Amino acid sequence: MDACINQLNAQMQQHQLPAIVDSFVRLTDAQQTLQLLHLYESAQRMSVKYAYLQNIASKILSQHVLPKELIANIQSLDKLSFFTPGLKFNNNFAQQNTQQQNVLHSLFSNCSGSNLPFNYVRSLMLFESNESLLQAVQQVDQNGLTAVASYIAKNPTEHNLPKHEFSALLALMEVEFKQTQGNINTAAFLKALLTLCQASPTKSLSDYKILLSGAYLRCKTEQIDRYLAQHK
């Protein structure tokens, strides 16, 4: 076991929360990520200690910026939910890694049909005052894609969204549109969508994926179909 995990476990056994928070800054980005993931994984194993372990993670992130390596590890709604109290501090929702991805990019690009995050994220926007979350929705990664664009054009799983998740995704599109004043990188989106199409075993995308693409770009689905057919 890594020395930083042994240190964290020893500090938790002695209920040394201030020491955990203070020593965090002296760790490397990779070690900080290991500690935070250890807290999450421990909480998953020991539900009775979930709130206690989440509180430790929140205290850490209230004092320190989210480590860059952790961003790519937040690929499920369960992880986002665990870290959400801490992400509300230090502009953590909008922190970006070396690929210029934030936690929403990572989550939306990798979420599964059984663990969709859109209604949860939309609820955070409705009931929490958090400027960094609004900022995160409009940020683009190194490929010019927002988090919503990444879900549609990069997530390989074909999801037929439940009504509440579909409505939430449309609401997030609207939020992004208003935040960016409609300034969508159409070329980057279509390039990513074409790459996704070419990587598909059938070399095609579902009608549902095309529908979401049309909704995002605010164009007719026939235009999406035509573009993909012309560039195959």
Rank of each mutant, 00 (worst) to 15 (best):
F24W: 02
Q96G: 01
Y120C: 00
G214M: 11
E128N: 02
S106G: 04
Q198M: 13
Q54R: 02
P117K: 01
I20E: 08
L36F: 05
F24C: 01
N6S: 13
C219Y: 03
L37H: 09
I74C: 01
K49T: 09
K79C: 08
T157E: 15
Q139M: 05
R226M: 13
L193I: 07
F127A: 02
V103M: 00
Q96E: 10
S81D: 10
Q135S: 10
F189P: 00
T202H: 06
K68R: 09
L36K: 10
F118T: 02
E222R: 14
E222H: 11
I60E: 09
A136P: 05
N110C: 09
S112L: 13
F83Y: 15
L211Q: 15
D225F: 13
S129A: 11
L217I: 10
E222Y: 10
N183Y: 04
G144T: 04
Q63C: 07
D22A: 15
N143H: 12
A3H: 02
V175C: 08
R26C: 04
S206N: 11
K209N: 15
E165Q: 07
I56K: 11
S150I: 01
K178G: 05
K191N: 13
S206P: 04
N90G: 06
A168M: 02
K49M: 12
Y52V: 08
Q44H: 02
L134A: 09
V48W: 08
Y227T: 10
D2I: 04
Y120R: 12
L70G: 11
K154R: 12
Q138D: 04
V48I: 04
D207Q: 12
G86D: 02
L66A: 05
I71V: 14
P162W: 07
A3V: 08
Y52C: 00
